[in-house]
Design a protein around this nucleic acid. Structure first.
Lengths: 190, 190
DNA sequence: TAGATATCTTGAACTAGATTAAGAAACTAG
DNA sequence: CTAGTTTCTTAATCTAGTTCAAGATATCTA
């Protein structure tokens, strides 16, 4: 599915609007492991995943990496805080598999909103849906056990477990790889 | 600050747009402890807090309440999932202090977007900012200790601790009231 | 003012999950 | 094919946070 098809699930675009939007996007190919954004810099682009899979993670003082989200095809991702406020990023974004992405610069997105306000609606819907997902995850983090969160992760990202290192899944769940190993064994034995 | 003043920090409104928006809002007064939305029903209104303070929480099978968010004056709140998709709500929203709120019905908000698309921009910005806050909270939940989360809560909601029962703060932090007590003592002794 | 109810604290015993360390598997790259 | 690196597992020990139970404060109501 093309990005325009994905967008047109939410809004209706004229030829002109669609073409103008496409003209703002910069395609980019990422090899597995490659970075697209790095901690310490200002995030210039909002990222649309065409194919492959990315992850965004936070690195703390002790150099531990904490995965905030995985981004699947047709999702937008990146450090929204750094992008929005143009402040130094606390997160990095990396390809977990060979991936194709489309990038849009902050000033181009702002210009797009000015010129074709219909895109405000699109991103309003995208952010609204994303907010719902995030609220769900917060509830899970405070209300569910690690095992429950793992089972839920498998449901939500059925394809991911095969090719994402388990340590990143553990990090996403907020546990250590060792403890994820224990959980997995426990589940196998049942 | 009136709701129109708050909105005009983000967008510019004509008299007509402002008045039409106001005409859709239903004012409501809540006494401390009163519910505005309950688990099990479809959320009809999106809630704007004029004064006071609300909390939204999830109730699990074992009847434990898990606080998802506190809503302060000039914030929007409610069960966004139930509101957006018109499905049964998993959350309840209650006044923590005597409060005044403004309610907008889903169909009225949809109609507003149709008639005056400038409000798409406003809610796009509101949701975008809220998303940033939620991402932050997720990082905190997976990367910080309970004590760190508590200190951060105090910074973020300096006024709240005085009149919100500690058990709800504990719930918001994802810990038991007993453990919050311990943390508080530990911090006092230093 | 007192009695009832909800909130907060304390402490002892417990458990989910972390840490450390080491070995086993699985992927690189030459 | 093999040496080197990363990932995954296992086990022992440790700790952050839970559970349970009781007492202390505070709040509400009559």
């Amino acid at each position: 599915m093309s990005i325009l098809q994905a967008i047109e699930k939410h809004i209706t675009l004229s030829k002109e609007e669609g073409n103008y939007f496409l003209s703002l996007l910069q395609p980019h190919v990422l090899k597995q492991g490659e970075f697209i954004e790095k901690t310490g810099k200002i995030t210039e682009d909002f990222i649309y995943v065409k194919s492959g899979c990315l992850m965004t993670y936070y690195t703390n003082d002790q150099a531990q990496e904490h995965v905030i989200q995985f981004a699947m095809p047709n999702w937008w991702t990146g450090d929204l805080n750094s992008f929005t406020k143009q402040v130094i990023s606390a997160y990095s974004t990396r390809a977990l598999a060979d991936s194709e992405v489309l990038l849009i610069k902050k000033k181009d997105l702002d210009g797009l909103f000015e010129r074709f306000p219909v895109f405000e609606k699109y991103f309003r819907i995208i952010f609204q849906n994303s907010l719902i997902t995030h609220q769900n995850r917060i509830v899970q983090n405070i209300a569910a056990t690690a095992e429950e969160r793992y089972l839920d992760f498998q449901k939500k990202y059925p394809s991911l477990e095969q090719y994402v290192p388990l340590k990143y899944i553990a990090s996403y769940l907020g546990i250590t790889p060792e403890f994820l190993s224990k959980i997995r064994r426990r589940l196998m034995e049942r």
